[in-house]
Design a protein around this nucleic acid. Structure first.
Lengths: 201, 201
DNA sequence: CGGTCTCTTGACGGAGTTCAAAGCTAGTGG
DNA sequence: CCACTAGCTTTGAACTCCGTCAAGAGACCG
């Protein structure tokens, strides 16, 4: 499946903003000017540990992940980002300091990305985006709170069932190794959980 | 130790804001007008599951916690908030919907709190506070990301050591049951972890 | 094809839980 | 100010969940 940037469409992003707060013509124009389309190929890094995160990314097609790698070489996934999701290292991006996270592509992926300067410029030209990006972070924060609470209160099986129920589209297209790294268990144990699950009902 | 609202001081809050972004005289005045001091006694609820979270709280003295209770009756702590920390249910507060969290006082606690209307009024009168509160959430979000990653990648012992190192003042004044509920382990096991720890070095 | 990645399965080991009991601390009411 | 109760901490033993290591069987891609 070929794709190139001339096919890039800003529409999904405009739709996304419009669902949060209606944009006028000028604001849509600003978004179109300040966000840049970009393609990442499978396994390509969007951000590498130690670098400064330069962009806020909106996924148009494909799937990215953010993760850390521990001293044993195991990866632990903080977030997946498929269509219409945002991904960045907020701490590194806003404070311009070295990132502890990696972000890379699980599939060939097209994003619309905005740099720090372009984003602060956007805040100045259209203050409405202050509110929009505050809401983005709030939503993301609430989701993360729920995930943490579930992690300290539920078994691996409960977390897995909850994940496939909340994200059926993701659990279909991701390899189980990635889901295990997200849930905080080993791929072997996830395999057993799934096996028990099919026998149950 | 007696304390009452006439002794209430807005100073810690003004100091806190000033360290993020310098405030002018008018802005300080606005903060003084719009934040209300309030006392909560030990075990008193600040927010109860099912209610709508009405306030953003800044702790001046004492300590609060936010938590859920599961079907077995176990509590799982999302956050502690001692001096100079913020605590609220962001989702419930901004979207005016029923909260899944409880917030209560672990000690007699004085807070400075602001209502939703007063906060949005503050945003309008002094846009600087848009930025201030965006930074607050960003910081909180980064802290939560780190905690989640540690939870899915580290042992109970590692998490405990990391907690007492990052928050020595808190770990001294909190009962171990509360720390265990925060780390996601049983109080019995935390006792054993501490016991091993004292024997080691 | 050949190699790499993914998924499964088994046996074993270890981290963390559950239940129960006991001593200790601290708040509370009379 | 004392007595009493409720909560905190510790310890033991049995048990469960989940990880580790190893091996083999597809599946996909170059």
């Amino acid at each position: 499946m070929k794709e190139d940037l001339t096919q890039a469409s800003i529409e999904p992003l405009l739709d996304y903003f419009n669902k949060l707060i209606l944009l006028n013509k000028e604001e849509k124009q600003l978004v179109t000017e300040r966000f840049q389309p970009r393609l990442y190929r499978r396994r390509q890094y969007v951000l590498q540990e130690g670098d400064i995160c330069k962009h806020f990314n909106f996924v148009v097609r494909g799937c990215l992940r953010s993760y850390i790698t521990d001293e044993k070489g195991n990866t632990h996934i903080l977030q997946f980002a498929a269509e219409n999701w945002w991904i960045t290292d907020i701490g590194s991006f806003y404070k311009t300091k070295a990132s502890k996270l990696n972000i890379d592509a699980l599939e060939d992926t097209m994003v619309l990305q905005i740099s720090y300067d372009n984003l602060t410029g956007l805040y100045d030209q259209a203050p409405k985006f202050n509110q929009i990006f505050r809401v983005l972070i709030e939503n993301s924060h609430v989701a993360l709170q729920n995930r943490l609470l579930q992690n300290i209160s539920s078994s691996a099986e409960e977390r897995y069932l909850s994940f496939i129920q909340a994200h059926p589209h993701l659990s279909n297209r991701l390899p189980q190794t990635q889901i295990a790294a997200f849930l905080g268990i080993t791929p072997e144990f996830l395999s057993r959980v799934r096996n028990n699950q099919t026998k149950k009902p």
